[in-house]
Computed example of a mutant assay.
Amino acid sequence: MGEVEFDAVASEYKAQHARSVRLSGDDVGYFAKYKIEDVRKIADRRQLKVRRIMDFGAGIGNSLKPLRTNFPEAHITCLDVSPRSLDLCRNELSTRVDFCNYDGEHIPDELGNYDLIFTSCVFHHIPAEQQVALLSQIRKRLNVDGIFILFEHNPWNPLTVHAVNNCPFDKNAVLISATEMRRRLLAAGFTNISKNYRMFFPGYLRALRVLEPALVRIPFGAQYSLTAN
């Protein structure tokens, strides 16, 4: 999906997303919250001082408030191909946040470098032939000790596949396995790539989520994350 397509669905994005995940038993906010809490834990383990964050493919800003909660001192750049989505993103939060519309192919050099670049379920919307080039640009935007954290849907999870197949804004999505996404990161020059699977239990089994730290190597969670530098 490009600028025009995302502009067209921006106003309905939240409602469409909520309908697509209803079988999970959780709301849209839960998915954004758990990802950013994971990101905070990763940064802490690496003793990373996070002063500048890029939310690559920020959309309407689902991750913006969790980012501010977990990184209260950081300056955040929200980058997206859709001007309409960024307008809605501004309504979420605008203090110490920049909003940058780009062409979907070239990350502007003037944005500078970042300690943390985060992306959530964006790459399944990007044509496969463009992904390595974009990942290479993301790598160049990292500071020396910076990290890139990518979350994606796991195509090996049947509930995830069902949700994507029944979500209008995902009609052109092509899900990417963690193994294939790791290959693309390597091709873009990333190293030290770690992989975790997440979301094994739907909302009605949330009491079992305390077991998830022991399951992160099992490739059947609804989503996965890759961390690299």
Rank of each mutant, 00 (worst) to 15 (best):
G2S: 04
V4W: 08
E5D: 13
F6M: 06
D7G: 07
V9T: 10
V9K: 03
Y13K: 02
A15H: 09
H17P: 00
H17A: 12
V21M: 04
V28L: 05
Y30D: 01
Y30A: 06
A32L: 09
K33E: 15
K33G: 08
K35C: 11
E37D: 14
D38S: 14
V39R: 04
K41S: 14
I42S: 08
D44Q: 14
L48W: 10
K49G: 10
G59E: 01
I60T: 15
I60S: 07
I60C: 08
N62D: 15
S63G: 06
L64R: 03
P66K: 03
N70E: 13
F71R: 05
P72G: 05
T77C: 10
C78T: 03
C78E: 02
D80G: 05
D80N: 05
V81I: 14
V81H: 01
S82M: 05
P83W: 02
P83K: 06
R84A: 14
R84I: 12
L86Y: 03
D87R: 10
L88Y: 15
L88W: 05
C89W: 02
E92D: 01
E92K: 13
L93D: 08
S94M: 10
C100A: 12
C100E: 14
G104L: 02
G104V: 00
G104C: 02
E105Y: 12
P108W: 07
N113G: 11
Y114A: 06
D115K: 03
D115P: 03
I117L: 14
F123R: 01
F123D: 01
H124M: 12
I126S: 01
A128Y: 09
V132Q: 02
V132P: 00
V132C: 03
A133E: 11
L134C: 01
L134P: 00
L135Y: 04
R139A: 11
K140R: 15
L142H: 10
N143V: 14
D145W: 09
D145R: 11
G146V: 08
I147V: 15
L150G: 01
E152D: 12
N157M: 06
L159D: 10
T160G: 07
N166K: 05
F169Q: 01
D170S: 12
K171F: 10
A173C: 04
A173D: 05
A173E: 00
A173N: 00
L175D: 00
I176D: 00
M181K: 02
M181T: 02
R182A: 09
R183G: 02
R183V: 04
R184V: 01
A187C: 08
Y197L: 04
M199N: 14
F200R: 02
F201D: 01
R206W: 12
A207R: 12
R209C: 05
R209L: 06
L211D: 02
E212L: 07
A214T: 15
V216T: 15
V216H: 13
R217A: 14
R217L: 10
R217H: 13
F220P: 00
Q223Y: 06
Y224E: 07
Y224S: 07
Y224I: 08
S225G: 11
S225D: 12
S225Y: 05
T227A: 14
A228P: 07
A228H: 06
N229R: 11
N229Y: 08
